[in-house]
Design a protein around this nucleic acid. Structure first.
Lengths: 257, 257
DNA sequence: TTTCTTAGTGTACAAATGACACTAAGTAAA
DNA sequence: TTTACTTAGTGTCATTTGTACACTAAGAAA
C-alpha cells in the first residue's frame, strides 16, 4: 500500500495535537488499524498521528498531509519542535509486528520529526482515514502506553508547551473565538498543572494587550455572566518570532530568580 | 568512500559551532575537499560541519562523531535545535557536483537535523579530517555563501542563541574557565548585536548567582586590573531544562512588554 | 607626575510582581 | 419573594525588578 506513494523509508513526521474541551487538556491519538495477530489488545495500539514523508515533500507539508489523512484535520498550524532518532525507537517487537503489516520496508531505521499544534477540540470534526481506525481525544493525564517512542515525544511536546505558553500568546489557539478570562485561566492551569491567582492572571493578560473585550456577555448561566473576550491576532502577528513576557507566578519549575 | 561505513542516505546532521575569540563571535566552518572540477572557487565551498548519519547510530552520537571527524573537536555538548527538510535543499547544481564526487547516492533527498554548540574558540585545537580540507573560524558578520541551506541553518541557530542566552546561562561556555565581567558583557554584546549598560549588566549577572568571584585578579594590564569570576556550573545543573530570567534591557527585538 | 585606559560603583524613579478578601450579578430552590 | 448558591469581577500594599545615568579607582606607560 505504501509503494505507490513513493515514501521515504527513513524519515517520518509525528504530530502532537493538543486540544481543550470540558476544562481538560487533551491529546489527539489514532488507533492503528487492527490486524489479525493484534486484535486482542487495542489499547496498546494507540499512537500519535504520523507517517513516513513522501520522497519529494517538504517536512512541514508532510506533517499537514499526514495529519489530514489520519484525522481529517485541515488548516492546522503545526510547529516543529524536535527530531527523534534513536535507532531502537522502531525496534520493539509490538511495533515491528504492526510495521510488517503496513510498511514496504518494515525493518528500516526511521528518524521522525515531531510537530505540535493547539486547536479547539470542541470545534473540530475528526474523520479518521487510511490506516487509522479511529481518532480519539485522550486527557493528558490518562495517556496510555503508545507506539514507538511516542510517549517520550508527547512528554517533550508538553514540556515545550509549558515553556512556550509563557513566552508567546499561543494558548488562545485552544479556545473558541470568544472566551471568558476564567476560561482562559482554566486553560493555563490545565497546561501548567497548577493553580493561578485570578487577579494577577487577569492583570497580566489584560496588560499584555493580546485580549480585547467584546460587547457581548455570557447568557443563561446560573451566576454573574462573564464578559467575552477575543484574541488580538493582529498584535500576535506583529510579534514575528519574538518572545514576550507572559510568565505566571509560582513557576518554580520553569523560571527561577 | 561512504559505502563502507553503512550510511543512511536520507538523514544527515549539521553542527553550528559558535566560538568566541578576540571579542568576536565566530562560526566554525569546513572547507570541502577540492575536486578537479571545482578547484577555482574555494570560497563557494565552505559548509557547516555535517554528514550523513550511520545506519545504526543515534542522532546525537552522529553529531558528535561527525564534528570530531571533520574538525577534531571532542567532548562538545551539542544541542539539537531544528530539522531542515525542504526537498530542494540538496538540489542546487554547485552542491550536486560535490555530492556526486563524495556520496554513494548523490541524488538522494536528505533531511538534516541541526545542532548548535558554544565553545571557547581560543582553547580549542582544530584538526580537520576526512573530506574537510580545513576547518576555519569565520566572524559571524563575514559568513559567506555556504553549501546547501547552511546559511539558513546558521541564521536560525543564531536567532535561537539570541533567545536562549536570555533564558539560560549558556554564554559561559564560550569563555575560558575564569573571565572578567567585562569579557562576559562583550560576549553578550557580540551575540545580541547591541550595547548593554555596564552597571545593569553586572547587577543582573551577579544577582542571578551564576557567577562567583575568584580570589584572583588580572595581572599586567595597563589599567585597573579586573576581578576574575567563574561560572557556577553546579547551580546551572540544578536548573535541569528550566528557564531563568536573564533578559537584558533594550531588547525590542526579542522581548516586548 | 601626568596621562591613558579600563574596572567598578549607587541612586532615583518607574514598572512589574505577588499576596491577599470581598462585593456583584445572575439562576435555582425553598 | 426571599434565600442560597455559584462564578465574575475588582484594588491595595509591600517588594522586587527594570532602566537611565556619571563619576572615582587602580594600574601601566609615557
Amino acid at each position: 500500500m505504501s509503494g505507490i506513494k513513493n515514501l521515504n523509508p527513513h524519515v517520518s513526521v509525528d504530530c502532537v495535537i493538543f486540544g481543550y474541551e470540558n476544562q481538560q487538556l487533551k491529546l489527539l491519538l489514532i488507533r492503528r488499524t487492527l490486524h489479525q495477530t493484534i486484535q486482542d489488545a487495542p489499547d496498546r495500539f494507540l499512537a500519535l498521528p504520523g507517517d513516513l514523508v513522501l520522497e519529494d515533500e517538504d517536512l512541514n507539508e508532510a506533517a499537514k498531509r499526514v495529519l489530514k489523512e489520519l484525522t481529517g484535520l485541515d488548516n492546522v498550524f503545526l510547529e516543529q519542535f524536535a527530531a527523534f532518532g534513536a535507532p531502537e525507537r522502531v525496534k520493539k517487537e509490538k511495533d515491528r509486528q504492526w510495521l510488517r503489516s503496513v510498511r514496504e520496508n518494515p525493518e528500516a531505521r526511521v528518524i521522525t520529526v515531531a510537530y505540535y499544534s493547539l486547536i479547539d477540540a470542541a470545534a473540530c470534526i475528526l474523520q479518521p482515514g487510511s490506516f487509522s481506525a479511529q481518532a480519539v481525544w485522550v486527557p493528558i493525564r490518562e495517556v496510555p502506553e503508545l507506539a514507538f517512542d511516542h510517549n517520550e515525544i508527547f512528554e517533550n511536546a508538553l514540556d515545550e508547551l509549558k515553556r512556550k505558553i509563557q513566552l508567546r500568546p499561543i494558548g488562545f489557539e485552544l479556545l473558541p473565538d470568544k472566551f471568558t478570562l476564567s476560561e482562559l485561566q482554566s486553560l493555563y492551569e490545565a497546561i501548567l498543572g497548577r493553580d493561578l491567582d485570578k487577579r494577577n492572571f487577569r492583570r497580566k493578560m489584560l496588560r499584555s494587550g493580546f485580549v480585547t473585550p467584546l460587547e457581548e456577555k455570557q447568557q443563561g448561566v446560573a451566576n454573574k455572566p462573564a464578559q467575552f473576550y477575543q484574541f488580538n491576532r493582529q498584535k500576535y502577528e506583529e510579534l514575528g518570532g519574538a518572545y514576550v513576557n507572559l510568565r505566571l507566578e509560582g513557576d518554580d519549575d520553569y523560571f527561577l530568580n
